[in-house]
Design a protein around this nucleic acid. Structure first.
Lengths: 242, 242
DNA sequence: TTATTATTTGTACGTTTGTATAAATAATGT
DNA sequence: ACATTATTTATACAAACGTACAAATAATAA
């Protein structure tokens, strides 16, 4: 599809910043360090296809076609399929983790010697993800959908653990400090519920719209605020009751 | 792998009740209505493999081997792959839906003219699923894991909608009655969060154990109680705050 | 200039995929 | 007894899969 690259007419391709601004690739060693750019293009294509069709549903050939490259270029840059998959997850995981760590340090600095408010912790963990997923960038939107798909699958949990568990434990420890009356096991349970809800919101399955009967997609900003309110109350209930 | 079927030694196969107690099938028309039994066996095998490897990760050949049948027998009984998948989901969806409807009617009868307590509604919706998934039956355990995998995927949401949305709407309507101060959109959001948490608990990914540092798997009964407490408080916060 | 290195292309291999066809077999209906 | 029906086996097929090899090409290094 879309093989009319011969005439440079005013198509979407020329108006929007695409992932392949250079046109069809020519063989030969590229100038300077163009490899990084090609890798990004492959990662973007893979990200979208893995999000749409899942790990097994998206083939290396699909990725190559979407990136405008030959099949072998994928393997050349990323090795076997599973390595490509891990690279897709890893790329934005690093960014997301940094945002969350910064938000946590910020909250710690503001709280001083006192415990951080639960609402602040929930906000700090969830906000970077939901904001990234709903701020227009299709890359982040695809990534969020992919994370949702991964959440309850064996391969997915293994990769998520590798990239996200350290920071998750930091937040859980801080939640325990803020909820001295709550059992630690229950706090982990609440944290898991929070993550599940966050991923559900960003997966854009259309189910909430269907269940509420509205045709228009819901406002992610509003979903975010509701999530914070809802889960903050949930956490507090773990400390007070029982 | 495991191709030493020549000698009938004391292996797990001979000790455990497998899905194929009748031994290898022989061609020819079976006595009476044995077809239903074969279909169940195929559904059990497909359920397990779809849960473990996902829709694209599990092949029809895998299912046939697991059920102890030839490849074509799967197509003979269920048609194309997607029909088999739908049949897997549908089988227990009917049971689950009945349990939930019964629980809802029960709660309505007990509440009389009053609104049903939010906690009762949360309990009624979640209990059949978590109890089925954790009551020892590997079929239900596989089914629950499969549902978790489906939750945030396009194919999955479509199938889930077809089988579960009607009852979900009933519960949401009742939740709105019990939360007169809450916005209907927020209630749907809370309901989605509740379902996501429920599926996460039953998917048995091992992440909560990893995050809490314990090696032993958590008690599902306890997770269930925590879920109800947590989400009931969340719903109530939607009505009181803002 | 010449040799080397990085990257893309084109092609190929063996396996696995979903699905289909044809024959064989045994219970059932008449 | 005989034709019919339901089901399993065996085999086949075209397509798609992940991966690999060899050649071509262009930038860089010597």
């Amino acid at each position: 599809m879309n093989d009319d690259t011969s005439h440079a007419s005013l198509t979407l391709e020329t108006l929007l910043p695409t992932d392949a601004p250079d046109g069809p690739r020519k063989p030969g060693r590229p100038k300077g360090n163009q490899s990084a750019q090609t890798r990004e293009r492959i990662l973007n294509a893979a990200e979208q296809l893995f999000a749409d069709r899942g790990y097994d549903g998206a083939s290396i050939r699909d990725v190559a076609a979407e990136a405008g490259l030959q099949v072998h270029s994928i393997g050349y840059h990323f090795g076997p399929k599973e390595s490509l998959f891990d690279a897709v997850v890893a790329r934005r995981a690093e960014i997301m983790t940094r945002l969350r760590r910064d938000a946590l340090e910020d909250a710690r600095a503001k709280a001083g010697a006192q415990a951080i408010a639960v609402e602040v912790l929930v906000h700090a963990y969830v906000e970077p993800f939901i904001k990234s997923a709903s701020h227009g960038d299709p890359g982040w939107r695809n990534y969020a959908a992919l994370m949702g798909r991964l959440a309850n699958s064996p391969l997915g949990t293994e990769i998520i653990a590798r990239h996200y568990d350290v920071t998750a434990r930091d937040y859980i420890a801080e939640l325990n400090r803020s909820l001295p009356g709550a059992d630690a096991l229950d706090v982990v349970e609440g944290f898991s519920a929070m993550v599940a809800a966050m991923l559900g919101i960003c997966s854009a399955t259309g189910r909430p719209e269907r269940l509420s009967g509205r045709a228009t997609p819901r406002d992610p900003e509003r979903s975010f605020e509701t999530l914070v309110r809802f889960h903050t109350a949930g956490f507090l209930a773990l400390a007070t009751t029982q």
